[in-house]
């Protein structure tokens, strides 16, 4: 189990508990505004763009080339940008804080 905090573009903090699946699925299941996950998590839509809090970056691993390519054309990108569909929930991510990009 991991507690993940999503900070929406309106500044709302939503802390959710997840067990399995991706961070995108967790966000969509709880209706986190700004995370749509239109493609269901196959890295084709970039509608689950988040910014990882810098201190948590080492926990989330590196982006794949395809994720990098998707983010190249996304808006509001930063070095901390990730697609939530590519992050799998694990105990290692307990306490993770991320900002929704839109």
């Amino acid at each position: 189990m991991a507690k993940i905090t999503f900070i929406t573009s309106q500044g709302e903090h939503l802390t959710l508990e997840g067990h399995t699946g991706s961070l995108m699925e967790l966000a969509v299941e709880h209706g986190v505004p700004g995370i749509d996950g239109d493609c269901g998590g196959v890295c084709s839509c970039a509608t689950c763009h988040v910014h990882i809090s810098p201190e948590f970056m080492p926990l989330t691993g590196t982006r794949s080339e395809i994720e990098d390519d998707m983010l190249e054309f996304a808006e509001n990108t930063s070095p901390y940008s990730r697609l939530a569909c590519q992050l799998t929930i694990s105990e290692d991510l307990d306490g993770l804080v991320l900002k929704v990009a839109r």
């Binding site: 239109d38 196959v42 890295c43 084709s44 839509c45 395809i66």
Partner: peptide, 24 residues
């Protein structure tokens, strides 16, 4: 069950298909 599938069948960027949620 292709896991990573960055297809552009619904277009890409600003003009991505408006009807995609319905079609899916």
């Amino acid at each position: 069950d292709r896991k990573v599938n960055p297809h552009v069948a619904f277009g890409f960027s600003h003009h991505k298909c408006l009807g995609a949620p319905h079609a899916r």
